[in-house]
């Protein structure tokens, strides 16, 4: 490596850090930095009425996996409730990501292939419903899918069903609701990725390849991959921590991990467990994210 190349690389790295500095500053101040408090809290003793006491303890971390049976002191049992809750969250989040990808891709494609003048209009159309706040939107979804709601009324009236579908207060409702709520988080990055590409190239490619499937796999997928990655992350991770949607649509009978953590900081009064649970979640999500991004990048470069 020549000296000139070396100094150019150094300059590039310096500019990378400089450009990222404002974001890092804001995040350190108002997101990552304060999170260190939580890391500390996970190693403290829980306070009598919430909060923590300044005494070191591993209780928070231990009780994630197994805890003392409340009716049988001295006997430690596997905390299967935690695993059940965790598994439900992961399952629903994956389903949500898949569904938003499945319907978000054609939608983003549709928008990206509109004439340039009307494209912003379609983009706005996808975001306008989201200018109404999440809570009221979720309540509105409830009104649509409830037993006396629009969907069931129409189905009953048409004679397709005789008893209304019980959708509300099930995991299905949570999954539908999250897909609705997080859809633009999938569509917008997909759009940004599709839109930058010259459609004529695809059309040209189509003339060269034999099948639609080949075009999709060899030409379209590599182009949109960054968008798919960005969209999946933006949908999957917030789904995993969702609190409001499971509470309203799921009827609160079955917690997701976000609700469970919230319980520890609220009525459960076990802040160290809440802190330890969130640190665990943070590590799992970070690892999953890195593996996913690495794998996706490798595929792209082999392309």
């Amino acid at each position: 490596m020549s000296a000139a190349e070396d100094s150019r690389d150094k300059a590039s790295v310096r500019s990378a850090w400089l450009l990222s500095a404002p974001a890092i500053f804001v995040l350190t101040f108002a997101a990552c930095g304060p999170l260190l408090i939580m890391l500390v809290y996970s190693f403290l003793t829980k306070g009598q009425y919430g909060n923590v006491e300044g005494v070191f303890s591993l209780e928070g971390w231990r009780s994630i996996l197994y805890s003392e049976d409340i009716f049988d002191p001295g006997v430690f049992v596997w905390a299967d409730a935690h695993l059940t809750i965790f598994w439900r969250s992961v399952k629903l989040s994956i389903l949500t990501t898949l569904l938003t990808l499945l319907i978000g891709f054609p939608t983003a494609w549709f928008i990206a292939t509109r004439p340039p003048k009307s494209r912003p209009l379609w983009l706005f159309l996808i975001t306008i419903p989201f200018w109404t706040n999440l809570l009221i939107r979720t309540v509105a979804i409830f009104e649509v899918i409830r037993n006396e709601g629009v969907i069931n009324t129409v189905l009953l009236w048409s004679g397709l069903i005789t008893v209304p579908f019980q959708i509300t207060y099930t995991d299905t409702a949570v999954f539908i609701g999250m897909a609705y709520v997080f859809l633009p988080l999938m569509v917008l990055p997909l759009f940004a990725a599709i839109d930058r590409f010259d459609m004529r190239l695809i059309e040209a490619a189509y003339d060269l390849y034999a099948s639609r499937f080949a075009v999709l796999r060899r030409v379209i997928l590599p182009i949109v991959r960054p968008g798919v990655i960005a969209g999946s992350i933006l949908v999957f991770v917030p789904s995993l921590g969702a609190v409001v949607t499971p509470r309203i649509l799921g009827g609160g009978k079955n917690m997701m991990i976000g609700n469970f953590i919230e319980l520890q900081f609220g009525q459960g009064r076990n802040w160290p467990l809440g802190a330890a649970l969130s640190m665990t979640l943070l590590v799992i999500v970070t690892v999953a994210l890195l593996v996913y991004v690495r794998a996706a990048n490798r595929e792209t470069s082999h392309g």
Binding site: I70, N254, M255
Partner: peptide
């Protein structure tokens, strides 16, 4: 603590 344990089991 008892209450929270019962509640967690109830909502899991």
């Amino acid at each position: 603590e008892y209450m929270t344990a019962i509640w967690t089991e109830l909502q899991k």
